[in-house]
């Protein structure tokens, strides 16, 4: 019988991810693993992990990894990549990590055009700490620190990181995708692959922003989360290539 699908080798055998049911981190991890398998780069790949749920992968992915201080992944990746240019270095960060506490590190690495890849998981909320408001929380969306919903007067508006970084000259590739349906999952995989290839070709800073869900902290079942992404998140965070040069 012909083998048409198997688990990516980049995920360790007999390991459990630890993500909640319906969480899309697992989907993105699988995509990253498949891209690494297809490009044949496992022996030269290193991941810098943010703090939060994104760090849960440390125990079961097969590539080298380090956990950065909260928000500092792009700075850690800068030091690593500059001194090991032949290693594929990517960060994997959530929205609190990348867009709040790590805003300076993210902007500055992008502005320097560091030859790294950033995988940015935007689910509009702090996951691991229990559903606090993130810079990406939608106006009106409830969070444990915005129990009446985010209001623009007190909390400002959601931050669009791709568009913000698009103001800079240096970045090579800025793209926003989602994992809310099979088509978008495939687009996400292609975007990750392109972003990794960019780095291998020395093109500079690439970021793939992936709009995902957090069933646990959104208080919605996984299927309703898919509707919420479609109806609420994507109008705020339109998908597509923002920069490709």
């Amino acid at each position: 019988m012909e083998l048409i699908y198997s688990r990516t080798k980049t995920i360790q055998e007999d390991k459990v991810s630890g993500f909640c049911p319906g969480c899309m981190h697992g989907t993105v991890m699988k995509l990253i693993g498949e891209v690494i398998d297809e490009l044949g780069i496992i022996e030269k790949t290193a991941c810098v992990l943010g703090i939060g749920c994104c760090g849960l992968q440390m125990d079961y992915m097969a590539y080298d990894n380090a956990t950065a201080p909260h928000g500092r992944a792009c700075a850690v990746a800068t030091g690593l990549k500059r001194t090991n240019p032949d290693t594929l270095v990517f960060t994997y960060q959530g929205d609190g990590d990348l867009a709040s506490i790590g805003l300076a590190e993210t902007m500055s690495a992008a502005n320097r055009g560091e030859n790294i890849t950033v995988i940015f998981i935007n689910n509009g909320i702090y996951g691991m700490t229990g559903g606090q408001m993130a810079p990406t929380t939608l106006v009106g969306m409830k969070a444990s620190t915005a129990p009446f919903g985010r209001n623009a007067k007190d909390h400002g508006y959601p931050m669009h990181m791709c568009e913000i970084l698009n103001q800079l000259t240096a970045p090579a590739y800025l793209v926003r995708t989602s994992c809310n349906n099979p088509q978008n999952v495939m687009k996400t995989k292609n975007a990750i692959k392109k972003a990794f290839k960019n780095q291998l070709e020395g093109k500079g800073f690439s970021m793939v922003e992936i709009v995902t869900s957090c069933p646990t902290n959104w208080g919605l079942d996984p299927l309703k989360c898919l509707d919420y992404i479609e109806e609420k998140m994507l109008p705020e965070y339109p998908l597509g290539v923002i920069r490709d040069r």
Binding site: A46, V48, A66, A68, P69, R72, A75, V76, A77, T78, G79, L80, K81, R82, T83, N84, T87, A104, E105, S108
Partner: peptide, 13 residues
């Protein structure tokens, strides 16, 4: 903060 994190990254390499 970023500088010492860069050193953390470079030394990790």
């Amino acid at each position: 903060v970023a500088s010492v994190s860069m050193v953390y990254g470079a030394a990790s390499g």
